[in-house]
Amino acid sequence: MISPPENLMSLSNEAATRHLTEAVLQGRVPIPAKGLDRSVRIHPSMEPRSIDPIRELIDEARKRFDDAPTEADAWLAPRLHSVLRFTRAEAADSGLWNHLALRVAPDHVFWRHLGKATQKKPVPMVSRSRFIGPFHTQAFARLWWAAELFRDGYDYDPVVVACGNQDVLNTALRMSIVLHRPTAQALLRLVKDGTAGAGREANALAKAVNAVASTLSLETLAPDAEPDTDAYRFWVGGREDSLILFDSLPDGPDDGRAPLDSVNRLEGVFRRICTEVPAVTKSG
């Protein structure tokens, strides 16, 4: 067993790709930690941070959701967001996510994302994109970004709703409509209250909204408030002093909530879409 690193570092895509052979992805050989460690570097603008609280979270998730790894997402996402306290610029650096997945917690990736054996690929394996991949696919990046995009200011409740529905995570997260906070919050209200609660309904609704947004300026219809970046920075600065609670939700950065009027207005629009679109109601 190779000891985990002390601090979170940045691992280059090139090195990560090079070392993620099929045998590694199948779990037949261990992650080549030493080789990877030759290609890590300190993130240029980030203070060194210990991986201990991250490990603690990962281990707790494993304990709590041993039988149902999928359900760990909703528990883990807000807490991971709260522990990491990245700025968006930092979170855009895939090197950090590579390091997390390959060196800090590869066990979590295998546990959560090991695929089923298929005829084509009889040995179960983890998709490479869960280790190094786009933000909406990589095992940790998707959770962090889901938390970042679906939280309502400091309130992580909507994140729990979003991450409790794999279709929201897999479909809606990659659509640019959810970059508009009132849209994201209004969608989640419908998911939460069951109007589009089932996976396929949520999926169909998100797609319908994505289509409607090609003719309707949701941002003009339901203006958002500019996030308070100072408050976010303040929250990032408080990382060292915080303690992650396992049984209750932490508070996120208090950088302002999506304006209630706007969320209400879009909720109305989306409800109408639900009744008009056969695909959303049909599957219910």
Binding site: R88, A92, W145, T220
Partner: peptide, 16 residues
């Protein structure tokens, strides 16, 4: 109404 939109794919920013 007229608006400017700043976006960056890598940071998921879309400011209207």
């Amino acid at each position: 109404a007229c608006a400017a939109i700043v976006s960056e794919r890598r940071t998921n920013v879309r400011a209207h």
